[in-house]
Amino acid sequence: MQIFENQGHKIIQADCIEALQTQICDNSVDLIFADPPYNIGKDFNGLADKWETEESYLEWCYEWLDLCIAKLKNNGSMYVMTATQFMPFFDIYLRKKVSIISRIVWYYDSSGVQAKNKYGSLYEPILFCVKDEKNYTFNSEAILVEAKTGSKRKLIDYRKNPPQPYNTEKVAGNVWEFPRVRYRMPEYENHPTQKPMALLERIIKASSNENDLVLDPFSGTFTTCAVAQMLNRHSVGIEIQEEYVKIGLRRLGLQNEYQGEKLLKELKSYEKPSNELALKLFEPNGTSIYGNH
């Protein structure tokens, strides 16, 4: 286990269950966003996202879910994701321990053919849970979206006296449309299941306040922590993979180097100079035409 910490932000490189058991105090966290491996065979930098049985996957999930609930403050909130086929098990398990306030659908379009013999998968489910349904943070004014009835259709509500135009804004509903993070997007990092910053921004704005503590037990590219930092929250990110920890250290500005390696964002293929250009930059003897620097 390694711990990196600076200015209210902490990265714990460890197994999530070990870190939750030993490094996070009970009743200390305001908001948890948990996006675990889905048990669908993704390759996380050589670590397989596949358990021997569905039962063993669920047993593991129930263990970290119980730990997350223990870490939440009494007025805290938790957002949980998993694959569509496992979310019913999560729902049934969690409703006995916390209050499920909303069942959210994150919808995204697909850039290509998803399936030919079934309906393609175009959404991921999210559970919004709280410990106390009468006492939790929900900043509705921070997550207003366009109300098309009022803003585009300009309809009048004649039930009111006097009649009034419909509102042009409303609180976001439980179907969220955000594009998935794609290779050419500026926020892209080298990770197979990176979540968009816009999705985390809505969650963190709605369910926490400035200086609150946000926890992500499966941090991946550390988007949760990066958005928390941007919104003046504190954060703790847990991640077992060293390569992803280095992304977090860079994104949060906790370190410029890691074990002698400069932490720089890897150039994408279209950002790298072509072979032809590279050859022009060097003389036949291999010396740069710009001299030695």
Score class of each variant (00 low, 15 high):
G76R: 03
R202Y: 05
Y57W: 10
L127G: 06
W60C: 08
G76E: 05
F44Q: 05
A147Q: 08
N167C: 01
L281F: 13
P186F: 09
L58W: 00
Y79G: 01
Y270T: 11
W176I: 14
S274C: 04
L264A: 07
L72A: 06
G253F: 12
L213V: 10
E63K: 15
P36D: 06
E187W: 05
H293L: 15
P37W: 06
F138D: 03
W51Y: 11
K280T: 08
I289K: 15
V130N: 07
L94S: 13
L263Q: 11
S288R: 08
E189H: 05
S110V: 09
I247D: 07
R95A: 06
Y258L: 01
L65Q: 09
M1L: 02
Y108R: 11
R251A: 07
A172M: 13
P165T: 05
D49F: 09
S208V: 10
I101V: 15
T287E: 10
E5S: 09
D109C: 08
A48K: 14
L67S: 02
E146D: 11
P125D: 12
I32V: 13
A48S: 11
S110W: 00
S269Q: 13
I238K: 02
G220M: 07
Y119E: 12
A228W: 00
E210M: 09
N75F: 07
N117M: 12
L200H: 12
K280N: 14
P192G: 10
Q164K: 14
C61E: 03
T287W: 02
I101G: 08
I92R: 11
F90K: 12
M197K: 12
P88L: 11
Y107D: 07
K97Q: 15
Y93E: 07
E271K: 07
L267Q: 15
E243T: 06
Y38A: 02
L264T: 09
L281V: 01
V145A: 04
L249G: 03
F128C: 05
P196K: 03
G41P: 04
G150K: 02
F86V: 05
E261C: 02
I32L: 00
L58Y: 10
K131E: 06
D43Y: 04
M81L: 08
G76A: 04
L277S: 07
T193V: 08
N275R: 10
E52I: 11
E124N: 10
L72V: 12
F178H: 05
I100E: 07
R184I: 05
K152F: 12
L267R: 15
L47I: 13
V175F: 06
D35C: 02
K42Y: 09
N232L: 04
V214K: 03
L213R: 00
I92Y: 11
N209F: 00
Y244R: 08
P284L: 13
D157Y: 02
L277G: 01
K131G: 04
L144D: 02
E271V: 04
F44I: 09
F218Y: 14
S28Y: 09
E283S: 10
I3D: 09
K71S: 14
D109L: 10
D157I: 11
K134M: 05
L20A: 05
C61K: 03
E55A: 14
N174M: 07
L72D: 05
F222L: 03
L199I: 02
E261Y: 06
N45K: 15
E141H: 08
V113L: 14
L144A: 08
H293G: 02
W176L: 14
